[in-house]
Design a protein around this nucleic acid. Structure first.
Lengths: 211, 211
DNA sequence: CATAAAAACGAACGTTCGTGCTATTATTGT
DNA sequence: ACAATAATAGCACGAACGTTCGTTTTTATG
């Protein structure tokens, strides 16, 4: 008699760890759609065909679940936006790749409801507590990454040194956020394509090299 | 014996109408803090020292309450941002005033939790239904107002005619939204002042007149 | 293969949600 | 001032919330 046990998920790691990850992957998507606070444990459990209590046991509280979701979202974002951009050479190519990947991750619905952190930002900007703090940290790191890439561009002579890198970074990200807004709320299908143009034009206006 | 009845709120209109307005004024603030969905009727009733059912009777359902809140927020926004800007002469002065007033209404906390519509945008961009539709309409009107002001500036020879007004409007609003984000989430106290500079610089770069 | 540990479940807790009723209190028009 | 009417309160409902607990099932290990 042959083995009849079907392996649904690759083993290796203990089972609890695997399901925890499955939960978080689904949770990130659901949270990007309904919000981190709007997400409920019952709804998430249904989605995964699990019992509420079985799911809940992986996290001690809803707040801990929320913090874990933010952590998972950070990893996904790092994987899909930051890491590929850091593979590009420092200077203008890296700046452009950061912008491009950010817009792509919205376009390709890496998070089902658009950029997880943009949504979380506006949901939690008036909700003090550990979750807000975690979101702030993630966002500060993102802005710092963009700022550093701009500074490198300045050092490499690709961008005017008269600019304040951090403010220019905010300006760039603002345009990306605006595109996200027009895309997700107003259903402007060209918003992300337009944003690539707009950002490129803005970079060009401060560039010391041809783009 | 003199009259001892104190008039707490000015009469004239029927009482129900007055309390309804009071409810909505408080609701707009609360919704800007906790979100339109996050806001609960019980919480709002407590805030106003009313019974849940007494408050509820003014609206047939939570959704109707949400729609009424959006309507009230529109009126407040119109009063505090649009109307003063339309008082300025068409062309660049009006464009600048629109930007200025928008940033001011965040700075002065016209809505307790920052711009009501910006928050509502990101909360409802993945929640189909009448509420989302109402938010979309309000936002389209805002963008149309800004677009029209830019077009007038072009006709008046204040701004380069090669620009696509609607896209430039989105660009401007994006920077305002970015400032809102840095101000509300990251607590960058200079964000709004910076945004005035950044927007002015952007306008200058497309202007045919001195700014 | 047996056994200890880990994971998932089902039921129930107290609370709050939105939403109906019914009764009472305030306001309004005459 | 009084009757008609509108506004508010009180109470209750079923559902869903986050959370706890004891039990059962599954997994990993000697």
């Amino acid at each position: 008699m042959p083995k009849t046990t079907r392996v649904v998920t690759k083993p290796g790691r203990p089972k609890g760890e695997r399901t925890r990850e499955n939960i978080l992957r689904a949770a990130v998507d659901l949270a990007s759609l309904e919000g981190l606070e709007g997400l409920t444990i019952g709804r998430l459990a249904d989605e995964l065909k699990m019992s509420k209590s079985g799911l809940f046991a992986h996290f001690g509280s809803k707040q801990d679940l929320q913090l874990a979701i933010v952590g998972m979202a950070r990893e996904i974002f790092k994987e899909r936006v930051i890491r590929p951009a850091l593979a590009k050479s420092p200077g203008m190519p890296r700046v452009r790749e950061l912008c491009d990947r950010w817009l792509s991750h919205v376009e390709e619905k890496v998070f089902a409801g658009g950029c997880f952190f943009t949504a979380a930002s506006f949901e939690f900007d008036s909700r003090p507590g550990p979750v807000r703090t975690a979101i702030v940290e993630a966002m500060q790191q993102w802005l710092a990454t963009l700022t550093r890439a701009i500074e490198e561009s300045q050092k490499a002579g690709h961008i005017q040194t008269s600019l304040i890198a951090e403010r220019f970074a905010l300006e760039i990200y603002s345009m990306a956020m605006g595109a996200h807004w027009a895309f997700q709320l107003l259903d402007q299908k060209t918003a992300l394509v337009n944003a690539r143009e707009t950002i490129l034009a803005r970079l060009r206006s401060e560039a010391r090299i041809a783009l």
